[in-house]
């Protein structure tokens, strides 16, 4: 799973430039054509989100926005690749030029992660 971190711009709900949108669209198309893109989505700014916190039986709902843009997620892409290195290689090709951006790559668990007999 490739998480795209939020930026000040995305949190302020400022739309990216036309060029940036086109570049992103082209990149997604490339992922699709390579047969590695399973799913993707973009998230609205945290001002439109809420958090639900659990303390024992108590539930607290906190309205956004939330501070620390870098800790927030602005979008995701689910890739199916053989290795983490391959995901990194694709992530490097994301068209984030000039702006400060960060993506986080997190492998999903698969069956073998729960199988104590495998790979030993």
């Amino acid at each position: 799973m490739m998480f795209v971190k939020a930026t000040k711009q995305s949190e302020a709900n400022q739309p990216p430039t036309k060029e940036a949108i086109l570049a992103m669209h082209k990149f997604n198309e490339e992922l699709e054509k390579a047969g590695v893109l399973l799913d993707l989505g973009g998230l609205t700014p945290s001002s439109r989100g809420v958090r639900v916190q659990y303390h024992g039986s108590k539930r607290t709902v906190i309205d956004g926005p939330f501070a620390e843009a870098k800790e927030l997620i602005a979008g995701y892409a689910l890739l199916e690749v053989k290795t983490l290195a391959e995901a990194i290689e694709w992530a490097k090709r994301s068209p984030f030029d000039g702006e400060e951006a960060e993506v986080e790559l997190r492998p999903l668990f698969d069956a073998s992660d729960f199988d104590p007999g495998k790979g030993v």
Binding site: A34, V81, K82, T83, A85, E86, I88, E89
Partner: peptide, 13 residues
């Protein structure tokens, strides 16, 4: 940091 894993990934793509 494994350069070979990175190279393999590039090759596959």
């Amino acid at each position: 940091s494994d350069p070979h894993a990175a190279i393999d990934a590039v090759f596959r793509i």
